[in-house]
Amino acid sequence: MSTVEQHYANHLAPIYLWMAGGAESALQAGRDDLAALDLTLAPGCKVADLGAGFGMHAIPLAERGYRVTALDRSELLLGSLEALRGDLAIETVHADLLDFRAYLPDPVAAIFCMGDTLTHLPDFAALETLIARVAAALLPGGAFVATFRDYSTELVGDRRFIPVRADADRILTCFLEYRPDTVLVHDILHERELGVWRTRVSHYPKLRLSGAVLVDVCAANGLAAGIDSGSRGMVRLVAGRL
């Protein structure tokens, strides 16, 4: 089994933009995600994007005039972000999610943790640590916005096989294998190389996180949170610092 960092470095990061539908399609989806939020931030304020990847949300945030710190553990994905950002005010940071406070010396207006980033944490203790640090890093009245996939309900049978994307030369499918606190995600990649199909498989653990658990952890740290349905099958959480 790979760690999250190994899985992305060796398997997913090189195809991540393709997996997301290409840069422009993914950035438009990020813009749509932000437009769907009932969130008012001061012009030019400082925000952070944790698990920013290639900039799906960091770039649209900067397009809105916010000063963005974008943190991710994948150097390859951050390189894609830097290539896509142009002259936008985005500071990129290659670091672990739990270490983000070292790069935010002053409180910020909002912290975003989008995609399925939260489930990449190693355990629920790490989740509690992250949320405590998020709460401490927000200005009074600041916002925490996160999306994630709810793996708390176990899929069975063929439903555990999930088509991700396919074209003439590449097919990506994932298979879910459940454990008590985690789900092992097997990413099965078929690629045509010089007319020959080759298969690569890698798997890594994700937390079986539910909306109710995340709301409770937020409340324990002074964040009033609500959840609803987000885009692309995600759960969306919006929390405010009391």
Rank of each mutant, 00 (worst) to 15 (best):
L104T: 12
L138A: 12
A126W: 05
E154H: 09
D150A: 13
H120P: 04
A135D: 01
D123G: 15
T117D: 01
V156G: 07
D167E: 03
P105W: 13
L176R: 03
L130V: 11
L118G: 02
A166Q: 08
A146I: 06
T117G: 08
C174T: 02
I131S: 06
I111F: 06
P105K: 14
G115R: 04
A136Q: 13
A125F: 10
T173K: 08
R159K: 12
G157C: 14
D158I: 13
G115W: 08
M114P: 03
S152A: 10
A126N: 06
R160H: 05
P107F: 15
T119K: 07
E128F: 09
A143H: 12
A168W: 00
G142N: 05
L104V: 13
T153A: 03
V156E: 08
L172M: 02
Y103F: 15
E154Q: 12
G115I: 10
D158Y: 15
R170T: 02
V145A: 10
Y151T: 00
S152H: 02
D116K: 12
L121C: 06
I111N: 05
A135G: 05
T129H: 07
E177L: 01
L176K: 05
D116G: 14
H120G: 04
L138H: 11
I111G: 09
Y151V: 04
E128V: 14
G115Q: 04
A166M: 09
D106Y: 14
H120V: 08
M114V: 09
I111V: 10
V134M: 04
G142R: 06
T153V: 11
F112K: 06
E154Y: 09
I111A: 11
F175E: 01
I111D: 01
F161E: 06
L138R: 05
S152I: 13
D123F: 14
D123P: 08
T117Y: 03
L139K: 12
T173S: 06
C113S: 08
L104E: 04
T119V: 15
A126D: 02
L104Q: 08
L155G: 07
T173Q: 03
L104Y: 06
M114D: 01
V145W: 04
P122M: 04
V156R: 13
F175M: 11
G142Q: 01
F175C: 03
P105N: 14
A146N: 07
L104K: 13
V156K: 14
D167W: 05
A136Y: 10
L118T: 09
F161G: 09
P140K: 09
F112W: 09
R170C: 01
A166V: 07
V156S: 12
V108R: 08
D123L: 10
V164P: 00
L127M: 12
T153Y: 00
L121E: 00
M114K: 07
R149I: 14
G141P: 12
A143G: 11
P163V: 05
M114L: 11
A136W: 07
L139H: 07
V156A: 15
Y103L: 09
L118E: 02
L139F: 04
L130W: 03
Y151H: 02
F161C: 14
T153H: 08
D106R: 15
T119D: 00
P107W: 12
P140E: 02
